[in-house]
Amino acid sequence: MDKYQSLREAGTDAANYDLETDDIIARLKLWDTSYGIELSDVTFDAVVVTFKSLPADLTALSAEIYEFCPDTIDQHFGCIADMIEMAEEVGQEIPADLRQLLEGVDLTDENYGLELLQRSLCNSKTVALWWD
Rank of each mutant, 00 (worst) to 15 (best):
C122I: 06
T126Y: 06
S34W: 03
N16P: 05
A46V: 09
R99A: 10
L114T: 05
Q5L: 15
H76F: 08
L28F: 11
S34Y: 02
W31Q: 15
C79L: 15
D71W: 00
V48A: 11
I25P: 04
A46E: 13
V48N: 14
D13A: 12
P55R: 08
A56D: 13
E110V: 02
A96Y: 00
D71R: 01
C79R: 14
W31I: 09
V47H: 06
D32G: 04
F68V: 00
S53Y: 00
T126S: 13
M1H: 03
Y66R: 14
A96D: 03
K3D: 01
A81G: 10
L28S: 14
C69S: 12
N111E: 03
A81R: 11
V49D: 04
I37P: 01
L107P: 01
T43F: 06
A10V: 02
L58I: 07
I80G: 03
E67P: 00
R8S: 11
M86L: 09
D23A: 13
L30F: 01
L39T: 05
G78N: 10
D74M: 11
G91W: 08
Q118R: 15
C79V: 07
A46D: 08
K3R: 09
I37Y: 03
N111Q: 09
L114V: 04
D74T: 09
I37W: 05
L30R: 01
Q75T: 08
L129D: 02
D132K: 09
F77K: 03
L54P: 13
V90Q: 07
A63S: 14
E85S: 14
P55Y: 07
S120F: 11
T43D: 03
K52I: 02
L58C: 13
D41C: 13
L19C: 06
I80S: 05
K29S: 06
K3P: 02
S53F: 00
W131S: 07
D22A: 12
I84N: 01
K125Q: 12
Y17E: 02
P95F: 02
I24F: 00
T59Q: 14
D97M: 05
Y112I: 12
D74Q: 12
Y4C: 04
Q118D: 13
E110R: 15
W130Q: 10
C122T: 05
M86A: 15
L58E: 08
M83G: 01
G91S: 11
G36V: 11
L98W: 14
D45H: 12
G113Y: 06
T12P: 08
V105H: 13
L117G: 09
M1Y: 01
L107A: 04
Y112G: 11
K125T: 00
R8I: 13
P70M: 07
L61D: 02
S34I: 02
P55A: 08
Y17A: 00
K29P: 03
N16D: 05
A63Y: 04
I80C: 04
G36Q: 11
L116K: 09
D82A: 11
D45T: 08
G91P: 07
A15D: 01
